[in-house]
Amino acid sequence: MKLPIPEFLKRYWHFLTRPLALALWIILAFGFFAGIIFWGGFNTMMEMSNTEAFCTSCHEMRDTVFQEMKTTIHFSNRSGVRASCPDCHVPHEWTHKIVRKVQASKELWGKITGKIDTPRKFEEHRLQMAMREWDRMKKNDSRECRNCHNFDSMDFSLQSKRAAHMHSTALASGELTCIDCHKGIAHKLPDMSGVPGW
């Protein structure tokens, strides 16, 4: 049986096979390759900006939060598993990642305009920046922590009494999430007066 070809497709094909349409072909091909290059480049950019080396390439980060992180358990520990900046600060899934990246471009803007270009200014803005991270982690149920720390794999009997007590109650019931109890896990804390629980 012969499939009926819609009239507009026939006309379109006819149009493309005219000699004059060569230019159109070239444009199409150009668009195709440009697309590949753009997409690849975009992803490469994303990957590149998703490394600790990138995060700490500006002194605002290198001299402050990075130095502070070096003394914590997520930088060096007995098992040798390292958490890098994006592990905690950039979501894994694509859509969340893009959203976070667009937000992060604001931080780059802060750099360009010199909003936080000295440790003193950094300290002044720390509470504001920390609050944004706490809010984000509270809203997504500490998704980045859970990428490494799986609640279902926690063996309470191997944890310290204090940890097991908290994890088996407030955490298990979903009342609180990791960041509610583990603030300041990687960096120095801002002035905590007014923050609930502190």
Binding site: T71, G184, K188, L189
Partner: peptide, 14 residues
């Protein structure tokens, strides 16, 4: 108990 990483600073007291 262990107190590793507990910050006691002018800003906060764990």
């Amino acid at each position: 108990h262990s107190i590793r990483g507990y910050q006691i600073t002018a800003n906060s007291n764990k």
